[in-house]
Design a protein around this nucleic acid. Structure first.
Length: 255
DNA sequence: ATGGTGGCCCGGCCA
C-alpha cells in the first residue's frame, strides 16, 4: 500500500499536476493540504473516475484538507474530534484499509510575536488530544501533512537564516516532540538520516535550484505501522516543471 | 534590510 502526502498549494491551480502524479504513482491513499476551495468546488467526480473515494474539509480561499483513497474510506472525522472545532479547515481523519489516517495542515505561525504563532502552538496540542481520542498507539496510525515545523536543524538549508523566525523555534519543536511522544515516529527521517533532504522550497529567489529548502512535510507513524514500512521517499521531481506546488509529495510503502 | 514568486482574486494578504 502506497500512502502519500502533498501540500498542493491550490487544488484548482494544481489539478492537472495532481492528476498526472496520481496516474503515474497510483497512491492507495493521498492526503492533500491547501486545496483552497469550498467543498462544492472539490472535484470529487474527477477523482472518483480515477478510482478514489474522497473526503474533503474545505473552506474557500484558504486552507482545505482532503483524503483520497482507493482502499476504503470510513470513519471520516472532519475537523478536531475533541475540544473546540478549529474555525479553519486544517484537519481531516479517516480509516483506510485498517490504517487510521490523520491529514493535517498546521498553522504557519507567521512570526514569533504574532498571535498566529500562539494559535499554532495551541493547535499542535489539540492535535495530540485529537489523535489520542480517535486512535491508540498500538494501532496502525499515520499522522501526516504539512507541519510547518522543521524538526531539527538538519531539516533546514541554513539554520542561521531561521533564528528568530518560525518553523525552527524551540516551542514549536517541543509541541512536535510532545505529539511524537504519544507513540509516533518520523519514518522518512528514520530511514534517511542524511542532511539536505527537503519537502518545501520557496518559490522566490530560485530556492529549489539552490537547494534552499526545509523538510516540513512528514509521515508520523506508530510502531506497528513503522514495522510494516518498506520504503519512504520525497518526490523532488514533482517540484520541477510547469506550475509546480512549492511542496513535494512524501510517500511511504507499507506491506 | 528589502524583496524576491505565486496562490487567492484584482488590492493587498498569505505563504
Amino acid at each position: 500500500m502506497l500512502i502519500a502526502t502533498w501540500n498542493v498549494n491550490s487544488l484548482k491551480a494544481r489539478l492537472p499536476r495532481v492528476q498526472g502524479w496520481i496516474e503515474e504513482n497510483q497512491p492507495d491513499v493521498l492526503c492533500i493540504q491547501e486545496t483552497k476551495m469550498t467543498e462544492a468546488a472539490f472535484p470529487a467526480l474527477t477523482f472518483q473516475e480515477m478510482g478514489y473515494e474522497t473526503a474533503h474539509l474545505g473552506q474557500g480561499q484558504w486552507n482545505g484538507v482532503a483524503i483520497l483513497s482507493k482502499v476504503g474510506l470510513t470513519d471520516v472525522v472532519a475537523n478536531f474530534a475533541t475540544g473546540e472545532p478549529d474555525a479553519e479547515a486544517r484537519i481531516i481523519s479517516a480509516t483506510c484499509n485498517g490504517v487510521k489516517v490523520v491529514c493535517v495542515y498546521v498553522p504557519n505561525g507567521r512570526e514569533l510575536e504574532h498571535e498566529h504563532y500562539q494559535y499554532k502552538l495551541r493547535w499542535m496540542k489539540q492535535l495530540r488530544d485529537h489523535v489520542d481520542t480517535i486512535a491508540k498507539p498500538t494501532e496502525d496510525v499515520v499522522v501526516t501533512g504539512d507541519f510547518n515545523i522543521a524538526p531539527t536543524d538538519i531539516d533546514v538549508w541554513d539554520p542561521a537564516v531561521f533564528i528568530g523566525a518560525t518553523h525552527t523555534s524551540e516551542p514549536e519543536r517541543k509541541v512536535l516532540s510532545d505529539l511524537c511522544a504519544w507513540g509516533l515516529t518520523d519514518i522518512f527521517r528514520e530511514q534517511h538520516p542524511e542532511p539536505k533532504l527537503y519537502s518545501w522550497w520557496d518559490y522566490r529567489d530560485g530556492s529549489f535550484h539552490k537547494a534552499h529548502g526545509m523538510r516540513i512535510d512528514y509521515l508520523l507513524v506508530t510502531k506497528s505501522l513503522a514495522a510494516k514500512t518498506i520504503e519512504t521517499a520525497i518526490d523532488r521531481n514533482a517540484r520541477k516543471g510547469e506550475k509546480p506546488s512549492d511542496h513535494a509529495p512524501v510517500t511511504m510503502i507499507v506491506s
